[in-house]
């Protein structure tokens, strides 16, 4: 309850129990940030570090991060690995299948900017050329702790969202994904 209490504007104590009134923004954002469900979207080497983040030592699930295999049930997409031109269309399709509000974490050098393959004829130089990205995570591959830090940054971004005015998302997200390629 400590998180909610910090954001409260008013506390009213009634006999027989306590009621807390919080701005609906903080409540919704707290719920969103505490259960970030990513799509298992490992493309290349970063996928192995992503799997290690879910496994016994780093245990992502204690942060509420529970991997979902289908985009229809996912909040965030970790683009973990190199985006190749042949894969670009499936990525856009999957991004469109995710329900709003959705986020993208570009994990690793290849997803950020092409990485070590920046001059290849078949690599898209960064996934932000095809879908909007919220958090960029550098590394080749980034450690699982780094991925957790990226999720924490995403949670901080989520905590700034507001119910009115387009969810605090990027302009492209606010317009919806109909404008994509």
């Amino acid at each position: 309850m400590g998180i909610v209490l910090d954001n409260l504007s008013k506390i009213e104590n009634l006999p027989g129990g306590g009621i807390a009134l919080a701005a609906s923004d903080s409540l919704i954002n707290w719920a969103r940030a505490s259960s970030v469900w990513p799509l298992t979207f490992g493309l290349a080497c970063c996928a192995i570090e992503m799997m290690a983040a879910y496994a016994s030592r780093f245990d992502f699930e204690r942060m509420g991060v529970f991997p979902r295999p289908t985009p229809r049930q996912a909040d965030v997409m970790f683009v973990a690995g190199t985006v190749v031109k042949k894969m670009a269309d499936p990525i856009i399709r999957i991004y469109k299948q995710m329900p709003e509000p959705k986020f993208v974490i570009a994990m690793g050098g290849c997803a950020n900017c092409g990485g070590p393959f920046y001059d290849s004829y078949s690599v898209v130089k960064g996934v932000d050329k095809i879908i909007p990205v919220d958090v960029y995570l550098p590394g080749c591959p980034p450690r699982p702790e780094a991925l957790m830090y990226a999720v924490i940054k995403l949670q901080e971004k989520m905590s700034k969202m507001t119910v009115k005015g387009g969810f605090g998302a990027t302009p492209l997200q606010a317009a919806g994904s109909r404008k994509l390629v």
């Binding site: 192995i48 190749v84 894969m87 001059d119 290849s120 690599v123």
Partner: peptide, 28 residues
């Protein structure tokens, strides 16, 4: 081909020590 990064072409653009770094990313 959904992860075809063109490594064999990239090998020709790097020198031998730089190409070593690319080889890690084959069977990662």
């Amino acid at each position: 081909g959904f992860l075809h990064r063109g490594m064999e072409k990239l090998f020709e653009a790097r020198n031998y020590s730089q190409a070593l770094v690319l080889t890690d990313r084959l069977d990662y």
